[in-house]
């Protein structure tokens, strides 16, 4: 009897096993969450080893006529190519951003680039824009892939070791953008707040150095910071006043704190280190803009509505050799 019972149990057990194995599925698992990238600040601004970061080369004077660049010069090579290759931004509202209606990149920086193209070709449209990130500015100049960089490019002693600059064409400084009604009133009140700045920039490095109790949050660029800000993922954004003005212009609930900038950011037009002739030529172009009032007209069009009248075109410092 026990043998029969065992056999019956075995048969029924097998049948049950077959039936049950057909029914159960392992649940589809969720993927492992991606690691949250940690913000990467550029090395904190190196101590100034020079006192002439804004000093550039004497302007080329008189400027050659458009289309008649001096033989053997960098400008002649650009003229030969037929277009000026400009590294710039496409999402820095007011300085260089793409107008969705026209598709054109426009802004204060673009006006500077067009002035250079006009001086070389007599046609401001003979430029090829290359949209680059802040981190690409120096490598692309060194590689010769762009002729000039006009992209909120601060002149520093360290950068002079790698590239050359025109005279300062705009004097900016780092500030803070917050929500209307925020309790943040300046650098000293950032403790415990999430503050965004683009990865790999001196803005993030300055934030870490000057407000160590703030929680830095990195983004690909300042517009990326604005997206985080609008989503409520950060409390503030820090960057150059020009850039922050562009962000505030896109968000009616964002304001740039009315305070003295806590860094000095002299913008220059970057060229390859060996192309000092091009830097001197651009200095001549900037002098023309000063005399003709075009610099001021451009400032009034793009920046004055958000930054006020300002202090005008910076006084040039020449004499670099």
């Amino acid at each position: 009897m026990s043998g029969r019972r065992i056999r019956l149990t075995a048969v029924l057990g097998s049948a049950a096993l077959l039936l049950t194995t057909a029914c159960g599925y392992e649940a589809t698992p969720l993927p492992e969450p991606a690691e949250t990238p940690t913000p990467t600040a550029a090395s904190p601004a190196a101590p100034q080893e020079c006192s002439n970061a804004t000093q550039s080369y004497d302007p080329l004077s008189p400027l050659p006529e458009p289309g008649q660049m001096p033989e053997g010069s960098t400008m002649a090579a650009i003229q030969e190519r037929g277009r000026l290759i400009v590294g710039t931004s496409a999402d820095t509202f007011l300085l260089a951003s793409r107008n969705p209606q026209s598709g054109e990149v426009e802004g204060f920086d673009i006006d500077m680039a067009k002035a250079v193209a006009r001086a070389i070709f007599g046609d401001e449209d003979r430029i090829q824009l290359r949209i680059i990130t802040a981190a690409e500015r120096i490598p692309l100049l060194e590689a010769g892939e762009v002729d000039i960089v006009v992209r909120a490019f601060s002149m520093t002693c360290a950068r002079w070791d790698q590239v050359a600059f025109s005279q300062e064409y705009y004097h900016s400084g780092q500030k803070i953008l917050v929500r209307q009604g925020s309790d943040i009133t300046g650098l000293s009140s950032l403790a415990g707040h999430k503050v965004c700045a683009p990865n790999g920039t001196s803005s993030l490095a300055n934030l870490v150095a000057l407000a160590p109790d703030a929680e830095p949050v990195g983004a690909a660029n300042h517009t990326g910071c604005l997206v985080l800000f609008q989503r409520g993922e950060v409390d503030a954004i820090t960057g150059d006043d020009t850039v922050l003005a562009g962000l505030a212009a896109q968000d009616p609930y964002a304001v740039v704190l009315d305070e003295e900038p806590f860094t000095e950011e002299p913008y220059g037009i970057g060229v390859a280190k060996e192309n000092t002739d091009l830097a001197a030529f651009i200095n001549g172009v900037l002098e023309q803009l000063r005399e003709s009032g075009e610099w001021n007209a451009s400032y009034q069009r793009w920046l004055a509505p958000y930054l006020g009248d300002g202090t005008g075109q910076p006084a040039p410092v020449y004499g670099r050799s």
């Binding site: 698992p29 993927p31 496409a90 660029n221 990326g224 997206v227």
Partner: peptide, 30 residues
């Protein structure tokens, strides 16, 4: 006409590839 629009577009596209695609990959694999 605000450039932040293009940033939202880039982030949406990037999110599709970085966050959504692994979910679809798991669904397809299983």
């Amino acid at each position: 006409g605000l450039p932040v629009g293009a940033q939202y577009l880039r982030e949406a596209s990037a999110q599709l590839r970085s966050d959504t695609l692994p979910l679809l990959d798991n669904l397809i694999t299983y």
